[in-house]
Design a protein around this nucleic acid. Structure first.
Length: 552
RNA sequence: GGCCCUAUCGUCUAACGGUUCAGGACGCAGCCCUCUCAAGGCUGAAAUACGGGUUCGAUUCCCGUUAGGGCUACCA
């Protein structure tokens, strides 16, 4: 919990606080505790639903709290730059924003941050959008969901940023800079050689505004830089980390408008977040150090500052920031590998957030119901595929047979058995028998190809272990028994097999194992009688005869 | 280098100063079940980085050390 001071408002304290808190503490508590105590409480409990419009002392000791309940003050956004694929870290950021919005009855916006022309990748936006939608993360406003604050693509808003840059120059909070990249490069080299912290030396900051304007007018290449106060520091509150203080002395006069006329992230994010009425900025921890620059911009524009929540990073197994080279990082990769969206969403939600009790399996709806920022942790989390696999298994298990059937048919269409896909009734029986053996949909094919095709080879290991010299005659005899059955069920097969074993004076397992090998080619799988019943008498007999000929 | 953030089993985490031999989950090992493989059940190994404080009492609060990460661009 933290203070949510929204700044300049004529001395009035305006904090975001939780409506539930207000209901609980609003009237009764205020009159039963001292002003100082109440104030502390309010500040500690601040959350997000209502604006505290008045906090004033009466009879010298008590505070009364009045509040305006806002209908739906929460507006959050996911603002990726379209550089190719959707990173799992990005998916988590998007998910947390989405969950936060839905949980609080707010809006979730998708904004594309494509202000770096050199990093633009063809088709990246489409891919981003389709992956997000696949995962079930639906946004209320965005590229293809028009809203009142569009356009939602930054490259289509260049005029807005230029206007705002101009405003900052006029108010004296930014200035034109004509330093060439060469000079800056040289500057950095000298600073490095002298073992100094590299930063812009602010040469153009003191240029007379008139001269600078004239040079711009004359067409001289330039950028716009924001002014950082020469001394002091800035403390802001992060919903996840608490107070963070950063000294101005280490901040650069950041470029906010590039020489190509595009804004940098810092300008664009602040302008858009304000114009789009974003209430909470929930983003990756990599932005924590530059947040003071953003807050400074809000102040320069005289805008209210939104709440900030910086999410811990996702890590590689070696704890470095999750990146390519150490496994897959694209959501698309996991999708292609056959992971269920339910599993990925569940898994990613648990990387940094926990429900507080011992539940592990969540649907998206349950996550919406349970999610809250104050149960988000502060430390980075390693992306651990083992647990994702387990979650995939759990979510697959929870799907109805019909759902799995649909998925299986899609998978079969892409498989070697595409030309000969069995009917639904048959597939349903396969699904029932393979359920607890399948972690992925494709396991209903790959772990039991014998349901789609007679074995073409017999696992040599199993042959060695289970196939005895007598097995030929035993199976011969068994085939004769089976041949007499009419439309045999699982139980009929079992009874017939046990009777045969008795007559042969051998243990049932001496028939079971060779038979399993004969019909499936492998040594593992569902119960044998289940397999037999699914395959059917004719197929079983055929496979027994083939095995007798081919196994040696 | 400078600045910022972080620190509980191998991994994800719970514990919001006190019924904690630090709980759960994944993974791992063993046992049970069993026609195999799974699933399931039971059991086990496994953690508060270190050092100082504060306190009657610290995983929990403070400081330092160490370690890891992030940032340090006319990239986001």
């Amino acid at each position: 919990m933290s203070t949510g001071d929204r700044g300049k408002d004529g001395g009035k304290d305006r904090s975001f606080i939780d409506s539930a808190f207000l209901r609980n503490f609003g009237t009764e508590r205020t009159s039963s505790c001292t002003g100082a105590c109440e104030r502390t409480l309010v500040l500690q409990f601040h959350i997000q639903f209502a604006i505290l419009s008045t906090v004033r002392a009466t009879n010298g000791r008590f505070f009364y709290v009045e509040c305006d309940y806002m209908t739906s003050p929460v507006r959050v956004r996911f603002a990726p730059s379209p550089t190719g694929y959707l990173h799992v870290g990005g998916l988590r950021t998007a998910l947390y924003n989405f969950l936060f919005a839905r949980h609080n009855g707010g809006k979730f916006i998708l904004r594309i941050e494509d202000t770096d022309q050199s990093r633009k990748v063809e088709g990246a936006i489409e891919n981003l959008v389709s992956t997000l939608k696949w995962a079930g993360i639906e946004y209320d406003e965005g590229i293809d969901r028009p809203g009142p604050f569009g356009p939602y693509v930054q490259s289509e808003r260049l005029e807005v940023y230029r206007d705002h840059a101009r405003r900052l120059i006029e108010s004296g909070n930014a200035y034109y800079c004509f330093c060439t990249p060469q000079r800056l490069e040289e500057l950095r080299r000298r600073q490095a050689a002298a073992k100094l912290t590299s930063s812009y030396d602010r040469r153009c900051r003191t240029l007379p505004q008139k001269d600078a304007a004239a040079r711009v007018e004359a067409g001289e290449r330039h950028v716009v830089r924001m002014k950082i106060p020469l001394e002091g520091d800035l403390t802001f509150n992060d919903l996840i980390r608490g107070d963070v203080t950063i000294s101005y002395s280490i901040l650069d006069d950041q470029v906010i408008l590039k020489s190509d006329g595009f804004p940098t992230y810092h300008l664009a994010v602040v302008v858009d977040d304000h114009l789009m009425q974003i209430s909470h900025v929930i983003r990756g921890e990599e932005w924590l150090p530059s947040t003071p620059k953003h807050i400074l911009l809000y102040r320069y524009f005289e805008w209210d500052v939104p709440e900030f929540a910086h999410l811990p990073l996702l890590l590689n197994p070696d704890k470095s920031k999750l990146s390519k080279r150490q496994g897959d990082v694209a959501v698309e990769d996991y999708r292609a590998k056959g992971y269920l969206k339910e599993a990925i969403v569940n898994f990613v939600a648990l990387l940094g957030w926990s429900p507080g009790d011992e539940r592990e399996i969540f649907t998206l709806e349950e996550l919406i119901r349970e999610f809250s920022l104050d149960r988000v942790g502060k430390s980075g989390a390693v992306f651990n595929v083992e647990k994702l696999n387990w979650l995939n298994f759990e979510h697959l298990r929870r799907k109805s047979a019909e759902e799995v059937l649909a998925l299986l048919k899609e998978e079969l269409a892409r498989s070697p058995f595409a030309s000969n896909i069995p009917g639904d009734a048959y597939l349903l029986r396969v699904i029932a028998s393979m359920r607890e053996r399948a972690g992925f949909v494709r396991d209903f094919i790959e772990k039991c190809p014998y349901f789609y095709q007679a074995p073409t080879r017999y696992d040599p290991e199993v042959v060695k272990k289970r196939w005895k010299a007598e097995s030929f005659s035993h199976l011969q005899r068994l085939a004769q028994e089976f041949a007499r059955l009419e439309q045999p069920t699982e139980n009929d097969f079992e009874v017939a097999l046990k009777r045969t074993a008795e007559e042969l004076k051998i243990k049932a397992s001496e028939l079971i194992h060779p038979l399993r090998l004969a019909v499936s080619g492998v040594g593992a799988g569902p119960g044998l009688y289940e397999i037999l019943a699914i395959l059917g008498k004719e197929e079983v007999l055929k496979r027994i005869h083939t095995a007798i000929e081919k196994v040696k």
